[in-house]
């Protein structure tokens, strides 16, 4: 089954006070089957994040279609779905993780993970238990569970981000350079996490500047330069 099918996607930004329109990206076509991991590579500014943010609808796309096979709604074009549908999909089906932590202030790590579960309708009891399991699973030091994450290191923030996104068991997970600015050991941990998610059947779409690092986990690579999907990680990362 095709989980996500991106057809002739394009996006431009108009900055009114500069009277300027930037074509961020255009002519993007690729698809991902259920349970696959597709990596996106390309130079800085080629529009990789724009593609991911448009899938999550933090950006409004203006050309093409983003067809997602939803458990709830069936086939939906995420470029056109209603705001309420998008909120539902974000709550239950589609997760987004970047290296930046964008969360409610004055909320502890534990509360953030619990909140993700509570908003899906889990009981307080179950949320408490699941949250601890997730924090433990992603190896966030127990001393950090009841503190605010704004002072966390890059790796800690990222692991918390992944915990928040994955306790929901999303069907589709979007990863925007989750390994950027991490040391080797932390990167290995992210790789292990992705392996586990994949083993659980999660469909993954990720941006990696060092895609070779994901060799063996990543099924296909979309290259922004050639606009083509290749099966092998090594070939895509050459040019």
């Amino acid at each position: 089954m095709t989980m996500l099918d991106i057809r002739n996607f394009g996006k431009q930004f108009t900055i009114h006070h500069l009277e300027k329109t930037i074509q961020a990206v255009e002519g993007v076509n690729f698809s991902i089957e259920e349970g696959e991991f597709l990596g996106i590579v390309g130079r800085s500014g080629s529009g990789k994040s724009t593609v991911l943010k448009s899938i999550y609808r933090s950006y409004l796309s203006d050309a093409g279609a983003i067809l997602y096979d939803s458990a709830r709604y069936g086939k939906v074009n995420l470029a056109k779905a209603t705001e309420r549908e998008m909120l539902y999909l974000r709550k239950y089906e589609i997760g987004y993780v970047s290296q930046f932590l964008n969360v409610m202030p004055r909320t502890t790590s534990r509360e953030l993970v619990e909140k993700a579960l509570l908003e899906m309708g889990e009981t307080e009891e179950a949320a408490r238990c699941e949250a601890e399991k997730a924090l433990d699973h992603f190896e966030l030091d127990e001393a950090l569970w009841d503190t605010y994450p704004n002072t966390f290191s890059g790796g800690e923030k990222l692991r918390l981000n992944i915990a928040i996104a994955t306790v929901k068991k999303p069907r589709l997970l979007l990863l925007d350079e989750p390994t950027a600015s991490l040391d080797y050991a932390s990167k290995m941990k992210v790789r292990e996490i992705i392996e586990k998610l994949k083993a659980n059947g999660t469909t993954l779409l990720g941006i990696f500047h060092d895609i070779e690092f994901m060799e063996g986990v990543c099924d296909k690579v979309y290259d922004m330069r050639t606009r083509k999907v290749t099966q092998e990680v090594a070939i895509a990362s050459e040019g």
Binding site: T14, H17, K53, R57, S58, Y59, L60, L87
Partner: peptide, 29 residues
């Protein structure tokens, strides 16, 4: 979700993070 008003009219509406990251109208920007 957020609605943006100007001079008595709605000029833009969207998911709050979209209004913040990809505002469409000159005033919202």
């Amino acid at each position: 979700r957020t609605i943006v008003m100007l001079n008595g009219s709605i000029i833009e509406d969207g998911l709050t993070d979209q209004i913040l990251e990809d505002p469409q109208h000159a005033y919202t920007q």
